[in-house]
Design a protein around this nucleic acid. Sequence first.
DNA 1: CTGAAAGCGCTAACAC
DNA 2: GTGTTAGCGCTTTCAG
Lengths: 334, 334
Amino acid sequence: MTVHDVAARSGVSIATVSRTLREPHRVSESTRERVLAAVDELGYRPNRAAASLRRGRTGMIALVVPDIENPYFSSLTKGAQAISRERGYGLVVVDTTERADVEAEEIAALRPQADGFILASSRLSDDALLEFTSEATCVLVNRDLGAAGDATPTVTLDEAAAGRAAVGHLWDLGHRRISYVGGPERSWSQSRRSRGIREAAQAREGMVLQEVSGYAPDAEGGRAAAADVLATSPTAVIAYNDLVALGLLAEWSEAGLRAPDDISLVGFDNTYVAGTSSPRLTSVGADLRQFGEQAVSLLLDRIDGAGTDSATQHLQLQPQLATRDSTGRPRSTS
Amino acid sequence: MTVHDVAARSGVSIATVSRTLREPHRVSESTRERVLAAVDELGYRPNRAAASLRRGRTGMIALVVPDIENPYFSSLTKGAQAISRERGYGLVVVDTTERADVEAEEIAALRPQADGFILASSRLSDDALLEFTSEATCVLVNRDLGAAGDATPTVTLDEAAAGRAAVGHLWDLGHRRISYVGGPERSWSQSRRSRGIREAAQAREGMVLQEVSGYAPDAEGGRAAAADVLATSPTAVIAYNDLVALGLLAEWSEAGLRAPDDISLVGFDNTYVAGTSSPRLTSVGADLRQFGEQAVSLLLDRIDGAGTDSATQHLQLQPQLATRDSTGRPRSTS
DNA sequence: CTGAAAGCGCTAACAC
DNA sequence: GTGTTAGCGCTTTCAG
C-alpha cells in the first residue's frame, strides 16, 4: 500500500495524493473526495519512515522518566500518551531506572529518532542537562535550570507553595508540633518542598517543626522512618510523597497507631494511591495527567511552531490540597 | 552527519561505513578501526528513518496496555522497556484507556510503524484479535485465542492454578468458609481464576465458597464490595486483584475489622502495591517485570528470526504465592 | 489546481 | 574486501 496504489486507484498523481493528506485545502473538492475514498478502500496508511526521511521529522516524541512503576510517573505518562496520540505523535517511553548514566545514554541514542523530548524529574546534572537542552527540543518537567536554562520550557509545580499549603492545613486544624520526613538530599523537589515547609512554620508563632531525613522515597523508606519520626513526638507528620506516607501509615498501623485520631498525616503529589489506603491520604499536588498533557502541549507547540509566543514558556502550576481522611484535629487541643 | 561524512573522514566508501556498522566481520580490521574512529569523532548516529525505509523494519515495537496507571501494567512495562532497549529496540507505549475501539484504531495506525506488537490484556474481540494477529507480528500477554490462534505466541499465567493456589493456602490455614470478590464478567483472567477457585473448593470436603461480583476491578470496586462480601460471613476472602483487595482492606479497617485477625485476605497479581498496605497483602501471581521481559523476548525472537523453533511459543508461567501479613488462621478454629 | 521529478540517508545486490 | 549503484515511499519545489 503506497501512494502509488492510491494514485492509480483514484486516477491522480502521487503528488496529489500526498497533498490531499497533508494540505487538503490545496486540492479541489472533487479530487479530494476521490482520493480520500481510495485511501479508505485500500486502507492506506502513510509510511512514516519515508515521510520522516523526507521531512526530517519522525513524528515521535520521547518521554523520559526515572521509574514508570512510580504512580507519579505512570499518571504523568497516561496524560502525555493521550494527548500526543491525539495530536498525531507517537510516544516513546524511556525508563532510566533512576540512573543518570542510563538517562544520558538513552537520550543520546534516541536523539535522531525523536522530534522532541520530555524529561521528567531528570537525574542529569545541570551541566549535562544544559548541554542537551541546547541541542535538542525539550521540555523539562519537575525541574528547572534557573536563568541559565531560560530558553527551555518547563512545567513545574510551585513546590514551595505546596510545602506551605501542607503546613497551613495542619496549622488550621490546630497542630503545633509537626515533623517532616524528607526525601533525597539532592532532589529538586525536596529542596523546594522543605524550604516551603520551613518558611511556613517559621511564619507561624508557636509552630514547632522537626525534620528527619535520609530515607528512600518509597513505601519502604516510609516504614523505615516510622519509628524515627514518632520519636520527635509530633501531632502531625508531612511525608515527602504519598508512597512514603503509605509506608508510615502501614508501620504505625502495626504499632496500633491510627490516623487521624492518634496522628495526622499529609503526603505529596496526590497520586492515585492516596485513595487506596486506609485512611485515605490527604495529599497536596497537581493533577498529574494534566501535568503530562501540558508538557506535551508545550513541546508540540515548539515543534510544530504553533504558539511562537515565547511568553508562557515556564508553566508553574499551583498546588491543590486534596483533603482526605488522614488529617484531623490533634487529639488533645487543650 | 551522514554516512558520507564518515566515509570522507575515513577514506572509504559509504557502503563500507554501512557494513562496518551492520556486519563488522565483513570488513578488514584496519578499515574497521578507521571507520569506527571516524564514527566516534564525528558522533555519527545512523538515521533510523532511512534504515527503516530501506530495510522495511522500524526498530520499534509497540506495547499496548489498557491502563498504564494500573500497577500490573506499569510493572509489565518496566520489564518490557528494559529488555527491548537492551536489544536495541525502541518501545512505543500505547494506553487504550480500557477501550476496545481505541485499541483497534491505535494498532491499525501504528502497524506500519512498529516491527511487532505486544498486546497485553487485549480488550479486542476474538475475531478482531485473530485478524490482527494474522497480519502483524504479535505476542499476546494475559490472553489467548485457543486453537484458532495457535500461530500467535502467548505469555500467560496459569490462572486456574493461581485460583487453586489461593484456595489451597486458605484451606491449609484452616479456613472453611471463603468468599471470592470476582472481576468483570468478560475478563479473560476472571473466568479462569474463578474456575480454578471453584474447582479447588469443590475438591475439598467441607469447604464452602461464595462469590460476589459486579464490581470494578480497582480500589473503589473493592470498597463497594466490602460490605456485600462480609454479608456472606466468610473467614477469608479472595479478591480479583490487589487493587480490589486494597479497597476491601480500607473499608473494613474503617469498620474496625482487621486482617488477618478478624478476616483473612488474598489478592492476585502480586503487584508492588501489595507491599504498601497495612497489613501487607498476601498475593498470588508471577513476577510482572519478567512477564514483560519474556513477551519482548518472544516477539524479538520472531522478528529477528533467532529462535525459530516454534515449540515453546506458548509460555504459561506458574503462579507464585507470596505470603504476607493479610492471611492467618481463622479466629475460631474450634 | 495538478503533474513530473529530485532527492532525504541508508542498505543490499552486484561488480570488481 | 571494497566500491558503485539502484532504489525504499514520501514530500516538495518547479512547471504547466
